[in-house]
């Protein structure tokens, strides 16, 4: 059994210990396998974003240990090169696309990461072209980001991370500021990167419809992990999800309400298709009776 890609042991974090007596993250322990697709869900202030920032050392845990590929990450004990390597391996895409693009031309922005890493020029050129092709933005290579839509800008930001060839990409509410079509673009991209390129995807969101598409959903509340499992397992307990301040995905909500009305539905569902099937089966059963 190989060691987990990310291993977190009893990690806590407080922003300002004197003002905030309640830590933003408290005593979180979990493991994330390489190549998995994990969604962190939780209401505002549940500590999910803070937790993500701990993983690529933007923040340092006040307590506990984090291991990446079996190696403990600790700012004080690491050399700059090791720190850079960790950050290169764990890319991060943020919420506001405007505030993470550095250059005035798309391809220059994508090149920013590899340039920082000191990659040779022709190699950067190749990576930038590949990354733009991956996110389907090749034809915009010479455009100015300010002329692009939110979804397109976010795809440029993703390309900028891909060009650094990370093992894992964290999406910190990257869809929160986008319109529905932009959200779809970005979520499709996450799925593609995970399935086709084997990149570990960690997405932080409060849209349940997005979390459902992951292989594993971790629900956080008050800085703690309150639920952890496959989407089916997590949505099988609607009360707990509501207690964490979240809404069920629409189809799960529908099934849940039907059950409350006394209609017998077996199993659980998270996608519209499985939901339709479930209801059809239930209708067949009633018509047979």
């Amino acid at each position: 059994m190989s060691q987990p890609f990310i291993k977190v042991e009893n990690v806590s974090y407080s922003y300002d210990e004197e003002i905030n007596l309640i830590p933003a993250v408290s005593g979180v322990s979990l493991e994330i396998e390489e190549g998995s697709y994990v969604a962190f869900a939780g209401r505002n202030g549940s500590g999910k974003s803070t937790f993500a920032k701990l993983l690529n050392m933007i923040l340092e845990p006040s307590d506990g240990k984090i291991y990446i590929s079996g190696k403990e990450i600790d700012v004080n004990a690491m050399t700059d090169a090791e720190l850079m390597e960790t950050r290169r391996n764990i890319g991060m895409v943020f919420q506001n696309p405007d505030n993470q693009l550095v250059a005035t031309i798309v391809e220059d922005d994508v090149a920013f990461g590899p340039e920082n890493l000191g990659v040779p020029s022709d190699e950067i050129r190749r990576r930038v072209d590949d990354a733009l092709k991956t996110v389907g933005m090749s034809e915009y290579a010479k455009s100015e980001p300010q002329r692009l839509s939110g979804g397109q800008k976010q795809r440029i930001a993703i390309a900028g991370i891909i060009a650094m060839m990370p093992k894992c990409i964290i999406f910190d509410e990257s869809t929160a500021m986008l319109d529905p079509s932009g959200r779809r673009e970005v979520v499709d991209m996450m799925e593609k990167l995970n399935r086709e390129y084997g990149i570990t995807i960690i997405t932080i969101t409060h849209y349940m419809d997005e979390a459902v598409r992951a292989d594993r959903v971790i629900v956080m509340d008050g800085g703690r992990v309150v639920m952890d499992g496959t989407p089916e397992q997590v949505y099988a307990e609607p009360e707990k999800i509501r207690a964490a301040g979240l809404e069920l995905p629409q189809c799960a909500e529908l099934v849940c309400r039907l059950r409350e009305k006394g209609i017998k539905l077996d199993g659980c569902c998270i996608t519209p298709e499985s939901c339709a099937e479930l209801i059809c089966r239930a209708l067949e059963v009633t018509s047979n009776e």
């Binding site: 690529n56 890319g91 993470q100 000191g118 020029s121």
Partner: peptide
């Protein structure tokens, strides 16, 4: 606020000043 977010995003993309930096187009 933008400056703060941009700084974090740049750090995440391994920005560490001009040392050892290369350029795409020379």
């Amino acid at each position: 606020r933008r400056a703060d977010e941009l700084a974090t995003a740049m750090e995440c993309r391994c920005y560490h000043g001009g040392e050892g930096r290369t350029k795409m187009t020379v």
